[in-house]
Design a protein around this nucleic acid. Structure first.
Lengths: 341, 341
DNA sequence: CTGAAAGCGCTAACAG
DNA sequence: CTGTTAGCGCTTTCAG
């Protein structure tokens, strides 16, 4: 027999037999439907429906040498900021006929590595990577193997690495400046670890604003993670201080921390913003609906995700690479009740 | 030449040449490291590092006939409820040596379908599916092709379909009962469309509670999507009514709606809970830090995700399938300020 | 312990 | 327009 049908397995071969055509025609039908006669097309489609044929991606990809999925690696799926980026990424990907697989590293170095490895093994078309860790070396190595990537949320330090980020230094400046203008004199920066680029940049911007204003002090409250629970702890510690020793304005390095803080501050009877004004960062959807609506530094969200994917597409196309491969968006300050005295 | 080295491409073949061993030995080293002599193992590893070899998943999977990734299809990545499930899913997956790819259908039927198709093409080991749509038929067809799945967040209606869900009827009952006990007499259920199983079940539970209490009425306010923005709209409409015509207790079918509602109610000067008490559903992390902290019906989160993955593993193993393949967790009511009069 | 070789399912180049 | 066929990279028998 030249084309035996194996029971149980439904491949292109079984479809061909059922439709009474050759394997090649089925493949043609699948990939260039217009190059097959209407009659055979119908018979093939019928056979496909009948048999419930699903084309095997492994075979296809092995043959083609590339897939049509792109990967989006996120440090924390439960941070709404990354979720809202994902929306934009998917919109742009759909437009380009690509599917997006999201993977969650949970900020864990080892898991980041293993997903990065996995993506390569899977031959993804490209990757979008958001990470609190220094990861450019790894991305450079991956790029050398032909897989392009865009660093998301952090400006790349080498010109070869495309990135999409916001200007965190000016975001930090905006936040601190605003607190000063609201009358705060003893500021605190809540965030860490400082080795994280975004954290350091935001602090740097805040420091610059403080330096412009003699008499205003900046205390740094270092935290190891940037989640709601950590905000609770920091706020507890602040409330436990002698009232005179408390900061009167806090710039939290992200909204999760800020939300946690407001929650505890309010619960412990500290008046926000009167006794303590608070600015967050990212302007996640929940910032505006916090116990005390949160003033926050707002990066673009969906546009940001779209920009990242478009950039990835641009750098991976054969055409001339785009003018600039390091997009930096300006942040905006969204003022809400947490700083409105 | 029997093993030519193609420049640029680094495959198992190139590694073999560089290490001076055969292709088969490299593969052995990769898959059964203990079956290779220490000397060759070292040489092979050196060659791998040197060349930056990454094994090609397409070839591997084609040969093996299966992959070691599982898929998690989510209707909305930006809903923190699904994000918190993801954490649990990944924990359990990591334990089993599996990687999780998350895909976002954005509640869109067509996108759901195309991801489901894609997962099959990719030969995932199994899928976890959360969907507001009726999707069991599709999953049954996929199961027939050998890919197991677990329906998440919705009890399956056929015994063959494994599922992990909470008892939404009793969740709805809990919510409405609580509002009644808080003194509410004109309740409103905010949610929709009613063809969504979870929505219908929650309403059914609420109705049961109302029937127990003569004199209490239940108004149904139908919405088409269950997001924060929709909550804003519903609240606007309620505030625009004559005060006497407003409900005094609202059960929102999820926290997103409830959060949007509180935000608008407070902004428009309606006192929550005094004029209007509010209960949400899902107990997402932000419910507790809402402008008025939200009473909510709480399903398990991480445990839920873990349970789903464990169930998937259990049904896909060759061993006897577990006693019960339809896990239903009981919900709890978490009482916060939004109903505390 | 090691190597040679077959073949997983598919696509595209080529011949008819 | 249709069929035949050669691999894509890998794993795994099976011999040695």
């Amino acid at each position: 027999m030249s084309t035996p049908t194996r029971p149980g397995k439904v491949g292109i071969r079984e479809v061909a037999v059922a439709a009474g055509v050759s394997q090649g025609s089925v493949s043609h039908y699948l990939n260039h439907p217009d190059r097959v006669s209407a009659d055979k097309a119908r018979r093939i489609q019928d056979a496909i429906d009948q048999l419930g044929f699903v084309r095997n991606n492994a075979g296809r990809q092995l043959r083609l040498g590339q897939s049509s999925t792109i990967a989006y690696l996120v440090p924390d799926v439960s941070n709404p900021f990354f979720a809202s980026l994902a929306e934009g990424v998917e919109v742009a990907a759909a437009r380009a006929g690509l599917a997006v697989f999201i993977a969650n590293s949970n900020r864990d170095r080892a898991r980041e590595d293993s997903y990065l490895e996995l993506f390569q093994e899977h031959g993804v078309r490209g990757m979008l990577v958001a990470s609190p860790n220094p990861i450019e070396d790894r991305l450079a190595a991956i790029r050398a193997r032909g897989i392009p990537s865009v660093l998301v949320g952090q400006r790349a330090s080498t010109p070869e690495q495309p990135s999409v980020s916001i200007d965190d230094v000016s975001g930090g400046y905006l936040a601190a400046r605003h607190l000063i203008e609201a009358g705060c004199r003893r500021l605190a920066f809540v965030g860490g670890p400082l080795r994280i680029r975004q954290v350091a940049d935001r602090l740097q911007g805040a420091s610059a604003a403080i330096r412009e204003e003699p008499g205003v002090t900046l205390e740094i409250i270092d935290v190891s993670s940037r989640i709601i629970a950590e905000g609770h702890e920091v706020a507890e510690a602040i409330v436990d201080r002698d009232p005179a020793a408390r900061p009167d304005g806090v710039f939290a390095v992200n909204d999760l921390l800020a939300i946690g803080m407001v929650q505890t501050l309010v619960a412990r009877g500290v008046r926000v913003p009167d006794e303590l004004a608070l600015v967050g960062y990212d302007d996640i959807e929940y910032a505006g609906s916090s116990i005390v609506p949160l003033t926050s530094v707002r990066p673009p969200h969906e546009e940001f995700g779209e920009a990242a994917l478009d950039l990835l597409l641009a750098v991976s196309s054969d055409t001339e690479p785009p003018e600039s491969t390091q997009l930096v968006f300006p942040p905006e300050l969204v003022v809400r009740a947490s700083t409105r005295r």
